[in-house]
Simulated scan of single mutants.
Amino acid sequence: MNYEILIVDDLPIIVDGYINLISATNFQRKPNFIKSYNFEDAYNKIFLNIKIQVNINVVLLDTSLPSYKEFNINDGVDLALLIREKFADCKIIIITLQNELLTVDRIIKKIKPEAFFCKNDITSESFPFIFKKIIDGNIYQSKTIIESQKELFKKNINWDVYDNEILILISRGVKTTNLPAYIPLSMSAIEKRKANIKDQLLEGKGSDNDLVSKAKKMGLL
């Protein structure tokens, strides 16, 4: 039985690079690579594997690709959560250039990936060794990801993952009235959380633009 590895990145040269590096790793089973360059194609290949009853064992995922709105894949977090639901034993490896404090925290809290890299932290020499550790059952976070979590802790912000999502979605231009379509909370609950965010960042005063601007100045977004 093959070891099924799904790689999702919009740059074919990056996908091929991962394949070359992984192919140099010692496997007990032969790896079979599934390439996807966007979330729509990845979504379709996930369900194709379900249909033919083939488990996906590992996913390498860039979370920052364009959304696939038709099936509510707004970002890589949504795709990773789908993978968690459909393939319970799949190891999820997040490899991204995104290192904003709240984005990193959201990915860790929602996905709990087996590995989380900033692309700038890995080299062709280090990647095969780390990949082998991950498939052997270890958890890994790269230097930038660890530093991001430490920096967020220093800011002493008393938020959970929903608060993070509210601010991230507002920064993407989603209006407050539309937030319940993205977050499983009532409008009143969202408004209370948003008020708490404004209290902490703006002492309760200011517009959504002011809120986003302050969050960016603090390095949260």
Rank of each mutant, 00 (worst) to 15 (best):
M1K: 13
N2T: 11
N2F: 12
E4F: 12
E4W: 08
L6F: 09
I7N: 03
V8C: 03
V8K: 07
D10I: 04
L11S: 09
L11Y: 14
P12C: 02
P12A: 03
V15I: 15
D16M: 09
G17R: 01
Y18Q: 08
I19G: 07
L21K: 06
I22V: 12
S23C: 09
A24M: 11
F27W: 15
R29G: 00
R29F: 13
R29D: 10
P31D: 00
P31I: 04
F33C: 08
F33D: 01
I34R: 11
S36P: 00
E40C: 11
E40I: 08
A42M: 01
Y43Q: 04
K45M: 12
F47P: 02
F47E: 02
N49V: 01
I50S: 01
I50M: 15
I52Q: 10
I52R: 09
Q53L: 06
V54D: 00
I56K: 00
N57W: 04
V58M: 06
V58E: 03
D62R: 02
D62P: 09
Y68W: 05
I73R: 05
N74S: 04
D78L: 06
A80Y: 07
L82Q: 09
E85N: 13
E85C: 03
C90K: 07
T96H: 01
T96Y: 03
N99D: 15
N99L: 12
E100P: 02
V104Q: 05
R106Q: 07
I107T: 05
I108F: 10
K109S: 13
K110I: 07
I111R: 04
P113F: 08
F116L: 10
F116N: 01
F117Y: 15
C118R: 14
K119E: 10
N120W: 05
I122C: 02
E125L: 15
S126N: 08
S126P: 00
S126M: 02
S126Y: 08
S126I: 13
F127N: 02
P128C: 09
I130Y: 09
F131R: 02
K133G: 01
K133A: 11
I134K: 04
I135F: 06
I135Q: 07
G137W: 14
I139D: 05
Y140L: 10
Q141N: 12
I145K: 03
I146Y: 01
Q149T: 13
N156L: 10
I157A: 03
N158S: 14
V161T: 05
D163K: 02
I168A: 00
I168E: 08
L169F: 13
L169A: 04
K175W: 03
T176Y: 04
N178W: 06
P180V: 07
I183N: 05
I183D: 11
I183Y: 05
M187C: 04
S188W: 12
A189M: 08
E191L: 13
K192M: 11
K194L: 15
I197R: 10
K198G: 02
D199Y: 10
L201W: 13
L202D: 06
E203W: 07
K205V: 15
G206Q: 09
L211H: 15
V212T: 14
V212Y: 10
V212R: 01
S213F: 13
K216M: 03
K216A: 07
K217L: 14
K217M: 07
K217Y: 08
G219L: 09
L220S: 03
L221H: 05
L221M: 14
